[in-house]
């Protein structure tokens, strides 16, 4: 028996809107630790890793580990039917072939339940080792989204370079080139507007903007985004989910042939 009650149901709506276009089908894993998902996009270039810790739920019951295969587009359709202030409860029976999403309005005057069929998904789980990154950039998530969107009007790829001067986002296309440099800025009044650059070694990596733009659909989840770079690793773009966990995107770089 699985029963997860999330008072801030809008978080789950935002998570689904962030990942449904990147991944079609995925297994949600439930354990005593929390509700998690790891899935790659169909071309095995990008990976989504979600964790919602059990402590973040108002009620969390998971009698035994359960893996539920879901079509993310269909799940997103159902969650779209929840109001932004609704409490969302996810329910499933052990060994059952469906999952129920229950939506309660804040004053309990409307209760809806949506049942969705589960599916068998043969997914490849990747072991992602803990790594030390050469550079970690923390910046406003809206600024990151703006930069990725702007650059994708000029070119298809972005070169992200971190030096002691700051972080530079560059692209080139048929019409010309673009460079955007952000310097560290910790002097702002609001911490969510800060840009913080931790650099061990200068690093420069090239990524497909199509994927970066897809990751920025998670912008409503967090005011800040963390971009972790190492020359020998995929980039990690992380959105923290308030008090509960994270949504991380991994993207393999492009390299010169």
């Amino acid at each position: 028996m699985l029963e997860l009650r999330l008072v801030q149901g809008s978080l789950l709506k935002k998570v689904m809107e962030s990942i449904k276009d990147l991944v079609n089908d995925a297994n949600f894993d439930c354990s005593a630790t929390g509700f998690s998902l790891q899935a790659m996009d169909s071309s095995h270039v990008a990976l989504v890793s979600l964790l919602l810790r059990s402590e973040g739920f108002e009620h969390y019951r998971c009698d035994r580990n359960l893996s539920m295969g879901m079509n993310l587009g269909n799940m997103a359709k159902m969650l779209k039917c929840a109001g932004n202030d609704d409490i969302v409860t996810v329910k499933a029976d052990d060994g059952g072939d469906c999952v129920t999403f229950m939506f309660e309005s804040p004053n309990q005057d409307k209760i809806a339940d949506f049942e969705m069929k589960l599916m068998d998904i043969d997914s490849e789980h990747l072991g992602i080792p803990e790594a030390e990154y050469e550079a970690i950039v923390r910046m406003p998530s809206a600024e990151f989204a703006r930069i990725c969107k702007d650059l994708s009007t000029i070119g298809d790829t972005v070169v992200i370079s971190v030096t002691k001067e700051g972080v530079k986002f560059s692209t080139r296309g048929d019409i010309g080139t673009a460079n955007i440099v952000l310097r560290q800025n910790t002097s702002v009044d609001k911490p969510e507007e800060a840009t913080i650059i931790e650099m061990e070694t200068p690093v420069s990596l090239t990524f497909a903007l199509r994927y970066m733009n897809s990751f920025t659909k998670a912008t409503p989840l967090a005011s800040q985004v963390t971009v972790s770079l190492s020359s020998e690793l995929p980039v990690v773009v992380e959105y923290k989910i308030a008090e509960m966990g994270y949504l991380r995107f991994y993207l393999a770089p492009k390299i010169e042939e």
Partner: peptide, 14 residues
């Protein structure tokens, strides 16, 4: 030209 690396070039399947 750039070659798009795959995640399996970096991470192992469990």
């Amino acid at each position: 030209a750039c070659l798009q690396k795959k995640l399996l070039d970096y991470f192992n399947a469990d």
